[in-house]
Design a protein around this nucleic acid. Structure first.
Length: 217
DNA sequence: CTCCCGATAT
DNA sequence: ATATCAGGAG
């Protein structure tokens, strides 16, 4: 399949996504970049819905980076336990909090290279923070939903999230990167989900190479 | 590559 | 029983 065809289809899919989900935004409830960072760390292998349940109380108990940094690790682990991976996530949250206190005066840096050096922050989480909290299109958020949809729509043949992001950055105009992530994730949750995609309800079906090839509806 | 890990849908 | 959920570190 010629690359120009892939790009043209990517742009049509993007337009359809934007038309279908014009209101798409980050589903993780938060106030400011720091809370968003914590929520995104918690969102690994966990639904955003469950993260929001946990953070509702968590952000009352711990209100600042210093509060997280100085928290008893056992208490923090207990507070986030329902999100899974709770020991790793507690360690990441405290390491991230201490890192921004020591290096950035307690502020979340608006810088990809600085963010990914902090504990618990990879490219995906950094892109969420930069795009949603700061409006900076440094890259394309590639999570489990974006990976799955990019593959189903044949926008990439890669499996590594970093390589998928490189492909999407070539296919989607930079001004659309942030909304593309939000809309794609929205679509991935509501229609093109992992187990039982609702192809019969899909507004993108006309452009989907996998229509009818997916698991029986 | 493996490990971390609880909750829910199928 | 198994797959999956807004991943990242060793």
């Amino acid at each position: 399949m010629p690359k120009s065809d892939v790009k043209a289809r990517a742009l049509r899919l993007k337009d359809a996504l934007f038309k279908t989900y014009p209101q798409a935004t980050c589903a993780l409830k938060h106030h400011g970049a720091f809370e968003l960072a914590v929520a995104t760390i918690l969102s690994a292998q966990c639904t955003d819905e469950r993260v929001n349940i946990v953070t509702r109380d968590l952000f009352k108990k711990y209100r600042t980076p210093r509060a997280f940094a100085e928290a008893d690790s056992g208490e923090l682990e207990a507070a986030i336990r329902p999100t899974g991976f709770f020991r790793n996530k507690a360690r990441s949250i405290q390491g991230f909090s201490r890192g921004i206190i020591e290096q950035f005066g307690g502020e979340v840096p608006k810088d990809m290279d600085a963010l990914v050096k902090l504990p618990g922050i990879g490219r995906k989480t950094a892109n969420v923070i930069l795009g949603t909290a700061f409006g900076l299109a440094t890259g394309v958020v590639v999570d489990t939903h974006v990976s799955r949809l990019a593959q189903r729509m044949c926008l990439t043949k890669e499996e590594d999230p970093g390589k998928i992001e490189q492909d999407l950055m070539k296919l989607i105009p930079q001004e659309d990167w942030i909304l593309f992530g939000h809309a794609t994730i929205w679509h991935g949750r509501q229609i093109c989900n992992a187990r039982k995609p609702k192809c019969s309800e899909c507004p993108l079906a006309a452009d989907c190479p996998k229509i009818g090839v997916m698991a029986h509806e």
